[in-house]
Design a binder for these strands. Sequence first.
DNA 1: GTTTGACTTCGAGCGCGCTCGAAGGAGCAC
DNA 2: GTGCTCCTTCGAGCGCGCTCGAAGTCAAAC
Lengths: 120, 120
Amino acid sequence: MGITIQEASRTSGLSAHTLRYYERIGLIHQVDRSVSGHRVYTEPDLDWLVFLTRLRSTGMPIADMCHYAELRRRGPETSAERRRILAAHRERVRERIARLTEDLGVLDMKIEMYDTKERS
Amino acid sequence: MGITIQEASRTSGLSAHTLRYYERIGLIHQVDRSVSGHRVYTEPDLDWLVFLTRLRSTGMPIADMCHYAELRRRGPETSAERRRILAAHRERVRERIARLTEDLGVLDMKIEMYDTKERS
DNA sequence: GTTTGACTTCGAGCGCGCTCGAAGGAGCAC
DNA sequence: GTGCTCCTTCGAGCGCGCTCGAAGTCAAAC
């Protein structure tokens, strides 16, 4: 047994193509291969993959994720910098949410305008 | 007097190149020209431009914005459909914010993990 | 034993949203 | 008139993040 690329794809929501691509660019560390050369993912691989999708969906650029991944490979002595990176990213996400919330208000107003116009 | 492309650029935060591009693809209706052929923006043009940037920053694809712009040009009889489009978009923005907020929580947890590890 | 199907590597291509550069024109300063 | 700056049109190019297809390998099913 072992997790196939199909299963990893289903779990992470990324296509098999994308999983290979992520490995190619160093986002995921060299995944184990079976005797026949097929990728065999581990549970920790999946966890990491899921975390990566979080970073992506919050808008972190691939390049930054690569940097983070590299620090992670270098081991515990980079943990302070990794923390710093995540904290900075968190700040950007907060700003993003604030901005979106503001835009949502404008959208609400605009929709309300359509409603009042229709009524008059 | 009249608003130049530079001023429109400053107001909207879009580059002059982008303003011309938006006009080219029909996002902004043909802008008036001066005798020398230079673009002369009006106040309503600017308002529209600013609204467009809201739609963009909330993630509406250019193609959808073009569609909306076209409906707007067709006049008041399209207002119901425009309202519908905005309401649907608003829903997506809400979902977006919800998703980001959830991801933010995960980020918080991850950062906390770094903190507790460091302390131990 | 052959077919099926999922996998491999590799490099090219794509869609989106700009972004840029070339080539030329008008207007003003000196 | 010679710069200089800012504008024009037009089409090509770019950066990001995938996405795809070709060509080949291997294992299990029939």
